[in-house]
Simulated scan of single mutants.
Amino acid sequence: MDPALQRVLDAHFPGLHLPAELAALIPRRRLSDGRSVFVQGQRPGAFYAVAAGEVETRFTGADGTVSVLEHVGPPRLFGLAAFAARQPAGYEAIARGRCELLVFGPEAYARLMDEVPGFARALLAEFAARFDGNLRLLQAARHQQAPERFALALAQLARERGRPAADGWLEVAATQQELALLAHLSRQTVNELMQAERVAGRLRLGRGRWWCRLQ
Results as ranks from 00 to 15, higher is better:
P27L: 04
L157Q: 09
Q176P: 00
A200L: 00
R207G: 02
E192F: 07
R136K: 13
D10N: 15
G105F: 07
G162V: 08
Q215Y: 08
R76W: 07
R58H: 14
G208W: 06
R204S: 00
Y48P: 01
R207L: 06
Q87C: 08
D2M: 03
A125R: 12
E100N: 05
F127M: 02
A110P: 03
A196G: 02
A11G: 10
A166I: 13
L214P: 00
D10V: 15
A23F: 07
E178A: 13
A89L: 09
Q195W: 12
A11N: 12
N134H: 14
A155Y: 11
R136V: 07
F78P: 01
L193T: 03
Q87E: 15
Q195N: 12
L9I: 15
F119T: 03
L9F: 06
Y48L: 03
L152C: 06
V68D: 03
V37G: 00
M113F: 06
L214N: 05
A158Y: 01
P74A: 15
R121M: 02
P106D: 05
Y109M: 04
A93N: 08
V37R: 02
L18H: 00
R161L: 11
A95S: 06
Y48S: 02
L185I: 10
L22H: 00
M1K: 13
V8A: 14
V66G: 03
L9S: 11
I26D: 02
T60P: 06
E160A: 14
R111E: 09
E54P: 04
H143M: 09
A82F: 02
L154K: 14
V116N: 05
V50R: 04
V55K: 08
R149M: 06
Y48W: 14
L102R: 03
R98S: 12
S186W: 09
A82L: 12
A151E: 11
T189I: 03
G53L: 10
F119W: 10
Q87A: 15
A62G: 02
A46M: 11
Q87R: 13
R28A: 04
E171A: 12
R202T: 07
A128F: 07
Y91V: 09
P14W: 01
L101N: 01
A180R: 10
A200T: 01
S32C: 11
S67V: 13
R96M: 12
A20Q: 13
A146G: 00
Q139M: 13
G34H: 09
S32E: 15
R142A: 13
E21S: 08
A93M: 07
A24T: 04
A196R: 15
Q156M: 06
P117Y: 02
A52L: 13
Q42D: 11
A140I: 08
L124F: 08
N191E: 12
V199W: 14
R198A: 09
D114V: 04
P27A: 03
E178Y: 07
R163Y: 01
F83N: 01
Q195K: 15
R136I: 10
G45C: 11
A82H: 04
E115I: 08
A52F: 08
R7M: 12
L203I: 04
P3H: 09
H184C: 06
A122T: 03
M194Q: 11
L9G: 13
